[in-house]
């Protein structure tokens, strides 16, 4: 495992808001092409950490490298090399499918020709070509979500950050959404995902669990289950959060 290429390297990341410590000496590494689950209760500091990794917020201290760039000084380069999708899908309801794709491609500096070609490929792959000129507001939730993910990796980023991407969707749709995530990972895109759903945690290659601003555990789902003597990730999560 350790011989693989490290794409996110975090060493003693500290983020303070006044006297409140949101991230307390986080240290972890994420490997290229890995699906990395980032778990924790609300308020544990997940969002703060993601914002720092995405270059939205400056850390207080630590050494943080994302896609080879320094999170203190090279946030512009970081932004160029990552994709991002949040719970709220991030597509514009009043634009069509094609217009949304073109807009996001455009702000990542893709050429018009490239956008056009890749749009064809993408819509064919999703079997979605007939919906090309439909407004997003007319699409069912599951489709919006798949499309939002496809848009987030449309510019072929090195890492994609998914902030609770499957909120409010049924398990079947969630499953088919994860097929897309696996596919992206196979194509070498590193997936950094936060989730509330413990069944999703099982799909990750490795999982970290944050409690009160610290990383309480970090291993493969199997490893965690063995270490905590649990049948599933739900139990692991409960045991870790209660014990501490």
């Amino acid at each position: 495992m350790n011989t693989r290429e490290v794409i996110i390297d975090v060493e003693n990341l500290v983020k303070k808001f006044g006297s409140f410590v949101a991230n307390d000496h986080l240290t972890f590494q994420v490997y290229k092409g890995e699906i990395f689950g980032f778990l924790g209760a609300n308020g544990a500091g997940k969002t703060t950490a993601i914002r720092i990794l995405c270059g939205l917020s400056t850390p207080t201290a630590g050494k943080i490298w994302v896609a080879g760039f320094d999170a203190f000084h090279q946030t512009e380069q970081i932004k160029r090399n990552i994709g991002y999708m949040s719970q709220r899908f991030s597509l514009y309801d009043d634009l069509t499918v094609a217009e949304n794709i073109a807009f996001y491609g455009g702000i990542y500096g893709m050429s018009r020709k490239e956008i056009k070609e890749k749009t064809e490929v993408l819509l064919n792959k999703l079997e979605f070509s007939s919906q090309k000129n439909k407004l997003i507001s007319d699409l069912p939730l599951g489709w919006k979500q798949k499309l939002a993910f496809s848009v987030a990796i449309f510019h072929n980023p090195k890492i994609v950050f998914l902030d609770e991407p499957t909120g409010g969707v049924d398990p079947i749709t969630r499953r088919s959404f994860w097929d897309l995530i696996y596919e992206a990972a196979e194509n070498g895109i590193t997936v950094f995902v936060t989730t509330h759903y413990m069944d999703e945690a099982e799909y990750c290659n490795r999982v970290s669990i944050m409690v009160d601003g610290k990383i309480a555990a970090l291993d493969t789902p199997e490893g965690l289950k063995n270490a905590w003597n649990a049948n599933n990730m739900d139990e692991v999560f409960l045991k870790i959060t209660r014990k501490l």
Binding site: C54, G55, L56, E76, K79, R80, I82, Y84, M85, S86, Q87, R88, F89, S90, L91, Y92, D93, Y104, I107, Y108, G109, F161
Partner: peptide, 14 residues
């Protein structure tokens, strides 16, 4: 409100 602002801020647009 729609959460798209986050996406814009994460993008290379300054």
């Amino acid at each position: 409100e729609l959460g798209t602002m986050e996406i814009l801020l994460v993008s290379p647009l300054n």
